[in-house]
Each structure stands twice: as structure tokens, then as C-alpha cells.
């Protein structure tokens, strides 16, 4: 497993696409706060829009799996991971006697590390650049806010662990880079749209929206609970933590099972 991890880390690092991921991440981190500044900076601070724009908002928006970098990273990593199938190099690992479970786990762990690292660096870079133009939040930054920020980052990473499990599953299950990308975009869009529909429906349902709220909060792609306030209640933590953990566990289990039965050409 260690040998496989070493190989997977190396092949991701050596891939030109990884360099592109880093360039895109840097570009988005620079452009996004600038765009916010252009759009909202001119608005009077007393104006509703101006008052709501903070570095904290931009920071948490940069984690969204359906927007900008959050969409680009999994797709590019999916392409890198799928190269093991398109080049046929996955065969070298099987022929030499590596178990399929360890091959899948190595793929999952390496994609998780790279995805979380790139998304985190991008988000932190976005935060630092945002702080040039905006305050972190309307209220003064406290030690409690720092703790909340760290916990929130951890929760965001759980979302990307789930996404990593999803792309590892897709690359193994589809064995075709094009189909895997289409499937990932489709899942991302469908869940994002479904999340939007549910949240609009919840607004109109008023008072009787417990079921809708449940579906809204368990949707990993649109959950708005992370970074929404300055503290978390137990119920929110369950909504934030359980779906990605259970989802990742299921995807990894099914991924290993599917890979064990899959014929490799």
C-alpha cells in the first residue's frame, strides 16, 4: 500500500495537469476577490449588498463544489486518476500482485490529499487576497472566530473527502475518462439544482419544512450550514459531518467491490 501511495503521489505530481490545477487555483484566488470588489466595492457600505460582502463570505464560497475551483479540481484530478486506465498502467499493479482493494485505497487517499491540499491552499489564498479589499466580517475577529474558522475548514475538507471518494469510484467504475467527467458534472449539477429547488421550496413551506430542511442539509453539494454563522449547534454538526462520512464510506466500499469484479482490458 505504501509503495502504491508513493507511485500515485508521484504520478499526480509529475502530471502537467496538476500544474494547471495550481495555476487555475491561483488565478481564481486572485480574480474572485477582485470581481467581488468590482461588483460590490462601489456600493455604499450602508447598502444591503455592500454590508453583506465580507472576506469570510468569499472564503466559504470558494469551497463550493459546484462553483469555480470546486468544480475544476475534481474534474482535473479525475483525468489524472483515469490515466491509469487509459495508459493501461493499472495492469502493472495487478500483475505484480497488488490487491485491488489497496489499489483503490491508494487512488482514493492520494486524490483526497491532493484535492484537500489544493482546495485549502486556494481558499486560504482567496481569503488573504479578500482581506485586502474587505473586512473578515462586520464584527471584530475574536479567538472564538478563529476556532470556528478551523472547525469549518475541517468540515469543508470532509466534503472534499466525499468528492474524492466519488471521483475514485467513478474512475474505477466507468474506466473511461470522458464518461467519468460527464457523470461527475451530471451528479454535481443535479444535486446542486435539487438543493436549490429544495431550499426555495423550504422558504415557501414555512414552519412545515422539516423534511425539506433535512434534504437541504444532507445535500453535500449545497449544504449552507458550514460558515453560515459564528458557532455550530450539535444538530448542525451532525448534518455537516454524517453525510460526507457515510457517503465516503459507502462509495469506498462499493468502489472496492466493483473494482474487484471488474475485468481490466
Amino acid at each position: 500500500m505504501t509503495n502504491l501511495l508513493k507511485t500515485d503521489f508521484k504520478r499526480i505530481l509529475k502530471d502537467r495537469l496538476f500544474m494547471i490545477v495550481c495555476i487555475i487555483g491561483g488565478a481564481f484566488a486572485l480574480i474572485t476577490p477582485l470581481l467581488y470588489k468590482l461588483l460590490f466595492g462601489a456600493v455604499d457600505a450602508d447598502d444591503m449588498l455592500g454590508a453583506f460582502t465580507s472576506a469570510k463570505d468569499i472564503f466559504f464560497d470558494s469551497f463550493l463544489p459546484s462553483g469555480n475551483f470546486g468544480l475544476v479540481v475534481p474534474i482535473l484530478l479525475l483525468i489524472i486518476l483515469s490515466k491509469d486506465f487509459s495508459f493501461g498502467t493499472i495492469r502493472n499493479k495487478i500483475i505484480i500482485g497488488k490487491s485491488r482493494a489497496s489499489i483503490f485505497m491508494s487512488m482514493f487517499i492520494s486524490s483526497t490529499v491532493f484535492m484537500c491540499a489544493t482546495v485549502l491552499v486556494h481558499a486560504l489564498l482567496t481569503l488573504f487576497i479578500s482581506l485586502i479589499f474587505f473586512d473578515y466580517q462586520a464584527d471584530p475577529f475574536t479567538v472564538g472566530d478563529f476556532g470556528y474558522l478551523l472547525i469549518s475548514i475541517l468540515f469543508e475538507m470532509l466534503v472534499y473527502i466525499f468528492i474524492s471518494a466519488l471521483i475514485s469510484f467513478l474512475s474505477i467504475f466507468m474506466k473511461n475518462v470522458g464518461l467519468s467527467i460527464v457523470m461527475y458534472i451530471a451528479i454535481n449539477f443535479i444535486l446542486s439544482i435539487a438543493g436549490s429547488i429544495v431550499s426555495v421550496a423550504a422558504m415557501f413551506a414555512e414552519g412545515e419544512s422539516a423534511v425539506l430542511e433535512f434534504f437541504m442539509n444532507i445535500n453535500i453539494f449545497t449544504s449552507s450550514l458550514i460558515g453560515a454563522s459564528n458557532s455550530y449547534i450539535f444538530k448542525d454538526i451532525m448534518y455537516i459531518v454524517l453525510p460526507p462520512i457515510i457517503g465516503s464510506a459507502l462509495l469506498v466500499t462499493f468502489g472496492i467491490l466493483a473494482f474487484k469484479k471488474k475485468d481490466i482490458k
Binding site: 509529475k14 502530471d15 493501461g88 498502467t89 495492469r91 499493479k93
Partner: peptide
Amino acid sequence: VGAIVETPSIYQNMSARDNLKMQCDI
């Protein structure tokens, strides 16, 4: 066992030495 099945399984975007290094790592 060592094997070449149909076509050699190599990373096209790497040099010969890097490919062999990858295999050594595996």
C-alpha cells in the same frame, strides 16, 4: 510474474527512466 499484455503499460507523459522508477516504486 512479469507480463506484457497486448501493449506495454507505460505512462506516455513520462520518460523511460521515470516509467521504470514508477515500476520500481510499485
